[in-house]
Nucleic acid binder design. Structure first.
Lengths: 150, 150
DNA sequence: GCGCCTTGGTAGCATGTTGCAACCAGAGTG
DNA sequence: CACTCTGGTTGCAACATGCTACCAAGGCGC
């Protein structure tokens, strides 16, 4: 078979995360969920994605425990998609991608959506990778211990 | 045409980042680059990816300024792929995905690769999303300011 | 209840993309 | 100068994506 390669049994947590999210659409769905989208139609309009793709991705995310399908909060008979705790734990991933994008793909002053602290209306601090004892770590200050081959 | 949807002109930095990286393979290539891989063959063996796919992804990453193709450091005539500063700036993204994967897809004690502080051999602190004035922010403490429609 | 619009999908088809295997040129090595 | 290693390219079959059309159930005016 020529199915897409899976990483769900990899030794590397990064690979398993990547596998669980599934594709880029899924990550943008999660982003929209953080932005407040809940309904099928909201995601569809916001992303401009084909409905069959959206259907499939929502199902994958629900099956993966990132989103949950719950009865609509407005009392109607429709359903809504909300982040589970596992989904909310993706927040640093989204923030990291956002900050990387801001720094590298926008001219100064170019209009863009902004993520702000609700209380003060200020942008967030850049994420910092810290050691156990609080030193800032660059990539070169770290190393990966691989699992010994079986 | 039915080409894959692009997001390189989106107002959202997350979308542009996603577009720039291209696909999941690319992210795993970047992960391996952080782990020390430099040569075509290293990436190929580590990932088990088809060579034509790897060729295409390396080219995309080089074109996108994430990797640079440089002469091999051992003096041979081959080339190596190293992270640019822009590529190294993806470190928090990889760390965030790694931590999410560790928390959600590994049983306690299940063998996995580990990212550690080179000096102490200790794992990193979990990433924290902080406000400008240092408060820890949950997703619900933030909001996204969208760009007004043109 | 009866039209009629909205919501949330499914079905079918044309293209694009992925994965695999085979092949190949140049670099290293004895 | 043979032989292997490295770093690819090419061709093909299967799968995924995107688009459009279609459809069923819910909501709403009356």
């Amino acid at each position: 078979m020529v199915t897409r390669t899976r990483f769900d049994d990899s030794d590397c947590p990064v690979a398993r995360s990547v596998d669980a999210i599934g594709d880029w659409w899924s990550l943008l769905i999660v982003r929209d969920a953080f932005d407040g989208s809940r309904r099928f139609g909201e995601f569809q309009r916001s992303l401009g994605v084909a409905k069959n793709i959206l259907t499939a991705r929502l199902r994958t995310l629900v099956d993966g425990g990132v989103l949950a399908s719950v009865p609509a909060s407005d009392g109607s008979a429709y359903r809504e998609y909300v982040l589970t705790p596992k989904g909310k734990a993706l927040f640093p991933v989204i923030v990291a991608l956002r900050q990387w994008g801001e720094q590298n793909f926008f001219a100064p002053g170019e209009p863009r959506s902004r993520l702000v602290d609700r209380r003060r209306g200020q942008p967030l601090r850049p994420l910092e990778t810290l050691s156990e004892d609080g030193r800032r770590l660059d990539p070169d200050d770290t190393t990966v211990l691989k699992v010994p081959a079986p």
